[in-house]
């Protein structure tokens, strides 16, 4: 279970998160919706340990481990995965090499045997077929020259390979056409199970037609201002965030 209590954080002296309380039980998928500037991306970065954010109060734990005391790579090894809103390019670093390095780093951290090149390729090809990704994407530099859709699919491929216990999807739907959106959603839905949970951060309700969440939370002004079932997302779509503000 991901447990966040009274979390406050600032960047460059400006308070962005003003007391987040949130619980995502194992096996559930929760959506966080909110207008631009509400703190959605900040929350995902604070949970995954990006530098530059100062935690000023509160706590966050995953499966009882104090997330905020861990290095980003330790959080990754503990099973936390962040699908980036803007996946980063690594020129000259082959995608296959990157994926295998990451996978083996995590396997090492868990005390599992590393995969050799052949084992890895077999696994990667299998997962790529499921995501309708052309095989040459393994040979290209990480995200270099990828279209927006390809970058997002590459994030989902990484998730499928790394098999996290909790995935945070930071506006993974932005810039995707409907076909790519379905592929991404299929990738997430395929992970669904009693040992997997996810925090799907999105601006629009569209993605939630394909990844149906167990709970929906509305993040505004650095706080969760409303929570409900999947129907909350549809209400928001119909009446906008203004209705929440008014409430």
């Amino acid at each position: 279970m991901l447990k966040i209590e009274g979390l406050t954080a600032e960047i460059d002296g400006k308070e962005i998160l003003k007391g987040i309380d949130l619980e995502v039980p194992t096996g559930e998928i929760h959506a966080i919706m909110g207008p631009n500037g509400s703190g959605k991306s900040t929350l995902s970065y604070v949970l995954s340990g990006r530098e530059g954010y100062e935690i000023t109060g509160g706590a966050a734990s995953f499966e009882g481990q104090d997330l905020l005391a861990m290095e980003p790579e330790e959080r990754a090894a503990a099973g936390l995965f962040l699908a980036f809103q803007y996946p980063v390019e690594l020129p000259g670093v082959g995608n296959a090499n990157f994926l295998r390095t990451a996978l083996n780093a995590q396997r090492r951290a868990k005390g599992e045997a590393e995969l050799d090149a052949m084992q890895f390729l077999k696994l990667a090809r299998e997962r790529m077929r499921a995501l309708s990704m052309p095989e040459d994407m393994l040979k290209r530099g990480v995200n270099v020259g990828f279209s927006g859709g390809e970058k997002k699919r590459n994030e989902v491929l990484q998730m499928a390979l790394l098999k996290p216990r909790i995935a945070i999807l930071d506006e993974t739907d932005s810039g995707l056409d409907i076909d790519a959106l379905k592929i991404v959603a299929d990738g997430v839905n395929a992970m669904r199970g009693p040992d997997f949970s996810a925090l799907v951060i999105t601006h629009y309700q569209r993605l939630l037609d394909y990844i149906v969440p167990d709970r929906v939370h509305v993040l505004m002004g650095g706080r969760i201002v409303q929570s409900g079932g999947p129907e909350l997302a549809q209400q928001l779509e119909a009446s906008g965030y203004g209705s929440v503000r008014a409430a």
């Binding site: 980036f84 390095t101 990451a102």
Partner: peptide, 17 residues
């Protein structure tokens, strides 16, 4: 870039790796 390092570390690589 800081975002390149963070991207790698989020995937489980140590900073030096």
């Amino acid at each position: 870039a800081e975002d390149q390092l963070f991207y790698c570390r989020q995937r489980g690589l140590s900073e030096e790796d």
